[in-house]
C-alpha cells in the first residue's frame, strides 16, 4: 500500500544579521508502510531525529541498534529496554526493606532503591506495590527513587517498556481515554509495569494490551476508542 508522509520541518536562516525561521514540508513516499521498519545495523539518514539509546555511530554514519520505525522523521524504537530518565514515573514492588533503604523491583536489570528519610511515614512491606519518581541514576547501576506512594489491592500488568509512551499518548490522551471508558484508575510506570484498580479492569487490561500490540500503527487513538465503545456495548447488552 503506497502512501506519502509529510514531515513538517523548520529551518533557521541567518541573513544580514537577521534570523528567519522557515517552515517547509518534506515529502517522503513509502512504497510500503513496513519498509520504514529498521533492524539492527541499518543506516540511519542524517536528518532523522533520534533517541540516544537506539543508535551508534561508526565514522560519519549512524546505524540502528534495535528494531525501530521511522515516524515523522523520528526514530521510534519497537523493541528495547527502558533507559531511565529523571522525573519519570515508575511502578514497582517492594523487594527488601532495610534500615535506611528500601529496595524496589522494577522488573529491570538496574537495582532501584528508595532512601528512607525520617519524615516518611510509609511502612513498607515486601510485596507492596508502589509508585515513585526517578530522581537519578547512579553509575549506570542504581536507580534512586523519590516520592513513593503505596498502591493497594489492584492488578499489576506488565508490558514492554518501549510501548509505554504510546500507552500514555500525547498529553495523556490514550490513557485518559481508556480510564474514562472503563472507570479504572490506571497508573503507568515507564518501566513497563502498569497498575490498574477499580472499574472494568478486564476491559482496561485488554485495551492496554491492544495499544501495546499495535503501538507502531497509525490512527491508534481512534481505533482504541472504537474498540472500547464496541466492548462496552456488548457488556451493556
Amino acid at each position: 500500500m503506497p502512501f506519502v508522509v509529510l514531515h513538517l520541518r523548520h529551518k533557521i536562516i541567518k541573513y544580514k544579521g537577521l534570523i528567519f525561521r522557515v517552515c517547509y514540508y518534506k515529502i517522503t513516499t513509502c512504497k510500503d508502510f513496513m519498509n520504514t521498519i529498521l533492524i539492527p545495523g541499518d543506516l540511519i539518514e542524517t536528518d532523522v531525529a533520534r533517541n540516544r539509546n537506539y543508535y551508534f555511530t561508526d565514522g560519519n554514519n549512524s546505524y540502528c541498534t534495535s528494531m525501530c520505525i521511522l515516524n515523522n522523521g523520528r526514530l521510534v524504537p519497537l523493541e528495547g529496554l527502558w533507559y531511565p530518565n529523571e522525573g519519570e514515573t515508575v511502578v514497582g514492588v517492594v523487594k527488601e526493606v532495610k534500615n535506611s533503604i528500601v529496595e524496589v523491583d522494577l522488573s529491570h536489570f538496574l537495582r532501584a532503591i528508595i532512601i528512607k528519610s525520617p519524615r516518611d511515614r510509609i511502612a513498607f512491606r515486601i510485596g507492596d506495590i508502589i509508585e515513585a519518581s526517578v530522581k537519578q541514576v547512579e553509575d549506570k547501576k542504581t536507580i534512586i527513587l523519590i516520592f513513593p506512594r503505596l498502591l493497594k489491592s489492584g492488578q499489576l500488568l506488565q508490558v514492554k517498556a518501549v510501548k509505554v509512551p504510546r500507552i500514555i499518548g500525547k498529553n495523556n490522551t490514550m490513557v485518559g481515554q481508556i480510564s474514562s471508558f472503563t472507570k479504572s484508575n490506571i497508573i503507568i510506570g515507564y518501566n513497563g509495569l502498569i497498575y490498574i484498580k477499580g472499574g472494568d479492569m478486564a476491559l482496561a487490561v485488554s485495551a492496554i494490551l491492544k495499544v501495546a500490540a499495535e503501538a507502531h500503527k497509525p490512527g491508534l487513538t481512534e481505533s482504541v476508542k472504537k474498540f472500547l465503545e464496541r466492548e462496552l456495548e456488548v457488556t451493556e447488552k
Binding site: P40, G41, F56, S66, P77, L81
Partner: peptide, 11 residues
C-alpha cells in the same frame, strides 16, 4: 536477540 530489543551493532 533483535526481537528481544538487545542493542546490537549488526544482525
Amino acid at each position: 536477540l533483535a526481537n528481544a530489543g538487545i542493542p546490537m551493532k549488526d544482525l
